[in-house]
Simulated scan of single mutants.
Amino acid sequence: MCLIVFDWRPGSDTPLRLAANRDEIHARPTQALAPWPDAPTLVGGRDLRAGGTWLAASQKGRLAAVTNVRDAHAAAPTSPPSRGALPYQALTHAAPLDWLDALATHEARAYAWFNLLYCDGVTLIHVHHSPTGTTLTRVPPGVHGLSNATLDTSWPKVIRARDGFEQALTQTPWQDPAQALMRDTQTAPTPNLPNTGVGPEMERFLAPIFIRGQRYGTRATTLVEWRSTHIELQESRFGPNGVTQGSHRHSLALTGATTPS
């Protein structure tokens, strides 16, 4: 994932509503949103090169998603493990909150920079790993945006997506305007772009909510609605230059009442 906006309302009938775009090289092999044959409690997309995921949910009442942190000013670790393993660990670990504490304390150092979101329906945790260190934060209620910096960083695409998502949530169903929002290709004025070390031309290319490119771009849009008994997931997939390649939906029944796990 490279852009996630979400509304976090613990204690409500819909504690989490989320929209996310995954940006990636189009040639990288990917499995669309589906149950995992080798981990049948999980539903999500899957990276077929490294075996991990960018966003997935579990029947146990967990959801996890990852984005990379873009900072070309600093040298990343050499030969790091795939960041796609992080959501999988969060979803399958016997004690995920303990694992997240360990990740933030020392284990994150092995990985290239990342953001990890973890939700169990009661608590939503953000782990941010960057050249300046690693932090673990319990996310407060409200509408938030996350891209390739830390939570709610005021990048133009984050502000535009977060404000648009808040408007989408006032409509019924919210998924239709949210889907349209996540396909917004509007860029931002050059003076407003971040400086992450990749150069002005690349910053402009990466600035839209939806990135349209031949080699690299938005590969999937995922929408999530968490309810007391199930989690609804829907995914739209895109090929080079933003060409639609299909969609999938899945209603994931939760195995019990939503409690911290």
Rank of each mutant, 00 (worst) to 15 (best):
C2P: 06
C2M: 14
L3M: 11
D7S: 15
W8V: 06
P10C: 05
G11M: 10
T14I: 12
L16S: 02
L18P: 02
A19V: 11
N21V: 15
I25Y: 10
I25Q: 09
A27D: 04
T30H: 01
A32Y: 00
A32T: 05
P37W: 10
P40W: 14
T41I: 14
L42I: 13
D47C: 08
L48I: 08
T53Y: 05
W54N: 01
L55F: 04
A56E: 05
Q59S: 04
L63K: 01
V66R: 01
V66G: 03
T67N: 03
V69T: 12
R70E: 14
D71A: 14
D71C: 10
A72D: 15
A72F: 13
A76L: 13
P77C: 07
P80W: 05
G84E: 02
L86T: 01
L86G: 02
P87A: 00
Q89Y: 08
Q89R: 14
H93A: 14
L97F: 12
D98V: 12
D98G: 03
L100W: 06
A104M: 14
H106A: 15
H106G: 12
E107G: 01
A108P: 00
A112E: 15
N115P: 07
Y118T: 00
C119W: 07
G121H: 09
V122G: 08
I125M: 10
S130Y: 01
P131I: 12
G133T: 06
T134C: 15
T134S: 10
L136Y: 03
T137E: 07
R138H: 10
V139I: 09
V139W: 03
V143K: 03
S147A: 15
N148W: 07
A149I: 02
T150Y: 11
D152V: 05
T153M: 04
T153F: 14
W155S: 00
P156L: 11
P156D: 05
P156K: 01
K157P: 12
V158D: 00
V158T: 08
A161W: 13
A161Q: 09
R162E: 03
G164M: 12
F165S: 02
E166P: 06
Q167K: 12
A168E: 01
T170I: 12
W174C: 09
W174H: 13
D176V: 15
D176W: 11
A180V: 15
D184Q: 13
T185R: 13
T187D: 13
A188T: 09
T190E: 15
L193E: 06
N195G: 09
T196D: 12
T196K: 02
G199L: 14
P200G: 10
M202H: 14
E203D: 02
R204F: 02
F205V: 09
L206G: 05
Y216D: 01
Y216A: 09
Y216F: 11
Y216V: 06
A220Q: 06
T222D: 00
L223I: 06
E225D: 11
S228R: 05
H230C: 03
E232S: 11
E235R: 05
F238H: 09
T244W: 11
Q245A: 10
S247Y: 03
S251A: 07
G256P: 09
A257T: 14
T258N: 02
T258Y: 05
S261R: 13
